[in-house]
Amino acid sequence: MIDVKPKFQAIVFIFATFIISAIEEYFIIRDSGMNDLLRIVAIMWTPGLIGFALALIFDRNLQSLGFKNPDWKSTIAAYCVPAVAAMLIVLLLIASRVAEFEIGEDLILKKGSVHLVLAQALLILPTMGVAVSFLSAIGEEIGWRGFLTSKLKELSFNKRNLIIGLIWSVWHWPLILFANYASSEKPWVNVICFTVAVTSFSFFLGYLRSISNSVFPAGLAHAGHNVWMQAVIPVFYKAGPLVPYLGGESGLFCAIIYAAMALFIVRKYKLQN
Rank of each mutant, 00 (worst) to 15 (best):
147 F>S: 02
99 A>L: 11
160 R>W: 00
250 S>E: 07
49 L>I: 14
68 K>L: 12
97 R>I: 11
25 E>D: 14
59 D>E: 05
175 L>W: 00
75 T>G: 09
155 L>P: 00
262 A>T: 05
231 A>D: 12
230 Q>A: 15
239 A>S: 14
40 I>M: 06
95 A>S: 14
106 D>Q: 10
11 I>A: 15
99 A>Y: 02
179 A>H: 00
116 L>I: 11
168 W>L: 09
124 I>M: 12
44 M>Y: 05
12 V>S: 12
241 P>Q: 11
27 F>A: 01
138 I>A: 08
223 A>N: 06
110 K>R: 14
108 I>W: 02
194 F>S: 12
188 W>T: 15
34 M>F: 10
120 Q>K: 13
222 H>T: 07
134 F>A: 12
67 F>E: 06
131 A>Q: 03
116 L>P: 04
152 L>E: 12
114 V>A: 13
241 P>I: 12
239 A>R: 06
205 L>M: 13
228 W>T: 13
252 L>G: 03
123 L>Q: 09
22 A>W: 00
63 Q>S: 05
137 A>N: 05
31 D>F: 02
40 I>C: 01
257 I>R: 05
40 I>N: 03
97 R>Y: 11
137 A>R: 02
111 K>S: 13
227 V>A: 04
56 L>F: 02
141 E>D: 10
87 M>T: 12
32 S>V: 01
102 E>P: 01
230 Q>Y: 01
153 K>E: 14
173 W>Q: 11
176 I>N: 02
8 F>I: 15
196 V>M: 12
52 F>W: 05
229 M>Y: 04
122 L>D: 08
180 N>E: 05
125 L>M: 13
62 L>I: 09
115 H>M: 08
271 L>N: 15
40 I>V: 15
199 T>A: 08
254 C>D: 04
26 Y>I: 02
98 V>G: 12
58 F>H: 05
266 V>K: 10
90 V>Q: 02
149 T>Y: 07
138 I>K: 06
251 G>D: 09
241 P>M: 10
116 L>W: 01
231 A>Y: 07
192 I>D: 04
57 I>E: 07
239 A>F: 01
131 A>P: 06
267 R>K: 14
18 F>G: 04
266 V>S: 08
188 W>M: 14
67 F>K: 08
264 F>A: 14
63 Q>N: 04
64 S>T: 06
108 I>D: 11
149 T>Q: 13
57 I>C: 08
105 E>V: 14
35 N>V: 01
107 L>K: 10
263 L>E: 08
187 P>K: 01
252 L>Q: 03
53 A>W: 00
75 T>V: 14
233 I>M: 15
157 F>V: 10
77 A>P: 10
224 G>E: 05
